[in-house]
Amino acid sequence: MALTPKDLLAFYRTMVTIRTFETKAAELFAAGKLPGFVHLYIGEEAAATGVCANLTDADYITSTHRGHGHLIAKGGRVDLMMAELYGKATGYCKGKGGSMHIADVDLGILGANGIVGAGQPIAVGAAFACKYRGNGTVAVCFFGDGAANRGTFHEALNLASIWKLPVVFICENNMYGISNCQRDHMNIVDIADRAAAYGIPGATVDGNDVVAVYEAAAEAVRRARGGDGPSLIECKTWRWRGHFEGDPGAYKNPDEQKAWLAKDPIPRLAQKLIDLGHATAADLAAIDDEVKAQVAAAVDFAEQSPDPDPADVLTDVYAS
């Protein structure tokens, strides 16, 4: 459980990478360079970071339409991601998927997903494969508060529970499904309460505190690896931006938005690192600069990459 300074600095770097990548994506979208829908995760970085720090490349995740953070935290490469956002041939999905469908199966990333709630049973299936093979790997399912109302939530948690599967359900409760705030879409406040209905443990943590998320996920992953079955962790957090780029988010209460901006997970960790003497402000600034350069290089890579060959529309439909 004791986190080393190295761990904490890695958390910092991951969160900054997500933030920088997405801030750049917002800019590029506004400049008309990215087609389609882009859903940003800014403000929620601690959740993906704290969870994925407990996983190896052999573990699986299922992600969502708001997936960039999960992918980066699971080890996804920002250059291949950026190229995919551009729809280039060099992108993760050869330009066929885009932001909402990025996947890297070699890293256990079973895809972002355009269908809300679709990842829940898929994660259950991946967890079944983990258990079936008996190699101690686990699956983690990321999903939102809105997705917790899909029927798939019920079916997935129930099946995972009766089969005692090594899966961790991570509900990123950012309190909105598009414009619909949690108050209006469910009659409870703590989604973790639902775990009891499936006979599995559930806990609520501060999703903007990377250490809190890490600790909870560590325990849930330990249970899963040890054959103790699924858990549900609810990370309370907040999406800073609109639902998708272009949505001004007029339905959000500005006071609430302000209060959540003040809970920004990145400066919170930065201050701790400095207080604990694990890093100086200059050390952190150096990480920021490295990440910035890495993201800038990713943009260059994407821009210089070729478009897919139109003939490739027809490839990859079936495995041969």
Binding site: G95, G98, D312, V317
Partner: peptide, 16 residues
Amino acid sequence: APDTPVPFSAVLEKAY
């Protein structure tokens, strides 16, 4: 459209 899912890239979608 051809018998494929809808591709993302503008170039591919145009071809599709």
